[in-house]
Amino acid sequence: MPIEETVNALRVAFGDLPVSKFRGDTRAVVPTEKIYEALELLKEKHGFDLLIDITCVDYLNYPGAKDRFGLVYLLAGTVTNQRLTIRAFVNEPEPRVRSVASLWEGANWLEREVWDMFGIQFEGHPDLRRILMPEEFTAFPLRKDYPMQGLGERHNFPVLKRGES
């Protein structure tokens, strides 16, 4: 089944989606509130059984950008040998999106990473904790409004001296 049929099926289900192609890869933008249904359809009916990655882009101060965060879902079909990129946009305050951890078990840690780095809430996630940064960290370090050198967290430790240690 060519990728065009998959895209047409998506369009039938979710209206006229913006679709583009770049160097042979197809990308489709799905409404944020429909992301779970779209990915479920792709997984169950179109053979996209493998979730390669979930990641996010912060479009703060990006020329021409209308939304703050762009979520990226990279899908692949191991039987059909197809790839598809699904995108969805979320905005402040409280960026949230429905979790797909119930579709792909591997989405669990990927969503935790996006939460850790960008602060996007995944509703229905079984265990939404930080995965890379320490538990006591409060900021979301890959947001564009977070300074490159941090807010002093990396200096916030007790100093051990010779006499005491």
């Binding site: 370090p141 490159m148 941090g150 807010l151 990396r154 430790f157 007790p158 051990l160 240690s165």
Partner: peptide
């Protein structure tokens, strides 16, 4: 690695 998570020299915290 002058980034948010990398300690800028261990001598700040241990001798």
């Amino acid at each position: 690695f002058d980034t948010y998570c990398v300690v800028q020299g261990i001598d700040r915290f241990i001798p």
